[in-house]
């Protein structure tokens, strides 16, 4: 600093001393802020507003699991558990034929309810390859729910393996369902919640595609009948796999357990198996027309286990060497394998 710039003490300079009041305010501020911070950081965990985390576990994220309801409807006496409709000119007549002995769709669904229809849209394949549910049947079902049963909303949801938008587009399901008046729910990043399924062995706590299940009254599964490389057959119960989130590819290490767990997780109002394009081999992806066998059956029922057992024997034509998951599902109380005497077959 040059001499010129040196500050000069002027005689008329008056100091501005710290007033008592200012001093007091500062002390109070220091004590207040410091004390508050000390309380927040140091007060035992149970105290109000305490931020103390003595073990490091208090700050871990907590997921409050949700639980699914039981969507089943009481069955009238003398009604078969499974109905098979064969023949008929189109999916609509067949579906009506199949539902009639069960009491019709109005037995299962009441006006004003919200219904989730869960198709299998796992891959981006055209419907005639048998890897996904048939759009025609879904459109008939959606219309039936909206017109005959006068429900408030029909939701269609799945969490496919491949890109959801593509799968719904290429399987023809999005177009069919939206034209019929249903609403498609695709999985978005906030659509999953942790689900608690008491009694399930592998998925007691597991993230599930919960958005379409919120406030839902009834759930209907619409599944194709497919060969499956590991669990032999993917039908009505395996269809619920499409609601799971998370790293679900680990479940192949114990596939039968997970499929039977799924039957415990979801107690559907109704299960519909579509026997119009049956994937006989190369499942569950298929991809070649020679893998598919056309059929003319629609199977509806309230016992998912018997339904799968029957379809395994009669649609996939695999005899009675049922996959092990059926026995496990029976043990878990989801239904009974022995379908003899509980199936009614109707033919156009």
């Amino acid at each position: 600093m040059s001499k010129k710039d040196k500050p000069v003490q002027r005689p008329d300079y008056v100091k501005a001393p710290l007033s008592r009041r200012q001093f007091g305010t500062r002390i109070a501020a220091v004590l207040g802020i410091g004390g508050g911070a000390a309380y927040l950081a140091g007060a035992p965990a149970g105290w109000p507003l305490s931020m103390k985390d003595p073990t490091g576990l208090r700050s871990m994220p907590v997921h409050t699991p949700v639980q699914l309801g039981d969507y089943r409807v009481a069955k009238a006496a003398g009604v078969p558990d499974v109905v098979v409709a064969r023949g008929g000119v189109d999916a609509e007549t067949r579906l009506r034929m199949a539902l009639e002995p069960l009491g019709g769709i109005t037995h299962f669904v009441q006006p004003g309810e919200i219904v989730l229809v869960k198709p299998n849209v796992a891959f981006d394949r055209s419907p005639n390859l048998g890897a996904t549910s048939q759009p025609e049947l879904l459109s008939v079902l959606v219309r039936m729910l909206l017109v005959d049963a006068r429900v408030q909303e029909v939701r269609i949801a799945d969490n496919p393996i491949e890109s959801p938008a593509d799968c719904f587009a290429k399987s023809g399901i999005r177009r069919a369902v939206e034209q019929a008046g249903g609403r498609v729910y695709l999985p978005d990043s906030n659509a999953f919640k942790v689900l608690h399924t008491p009694g399930a062995k592998l998925i007691e706590q597991w993230p599930i595609f919960h958005r379409p299940l919120t406030n839902v009254d009834k759930v209907i599964g619409v599944a194709p009948v497919k060969d499956h490389n590991l669990c032999h057959a993917s039908m009505g119960m395996k269809n619920w796999y499409g609601l799971l989130g998370g790293r679900r590819n680990q479940f192949h290490q114990d596939i039968h357990e997970i499929v039977s767990d799924l039957s415990l997780m979801m107690r559907p109002t109704l299960t519909i198996l579509d026997g119009s394009q049956i994937l006989m081999k190369n499942g569950p992806t298929g991809g070649d027309p020679s893998d598919v066998k056309p059929g003319d059956a629609i199977v509806c029922g309230v016992d998912p286990v018997a339904l799968d057992a029957w379809a395994f024997e009669h649609l996939l034509e695999r005899g009675q060497y049922y996959p092990r998951y059926l026995a496990l599902a029976e043990q878990k109380g989801s239904g009974e394998v022995a379908w003899t005497g509980r199936v009614r077959e109707v033919r156009a």
Partner: peptide, 10 residues
Amino acid sequence: YDPGERDISI
């Protein structure tokens, strides 16, 4: 066109 139609014929 619709991306959904970008598929192979059966």
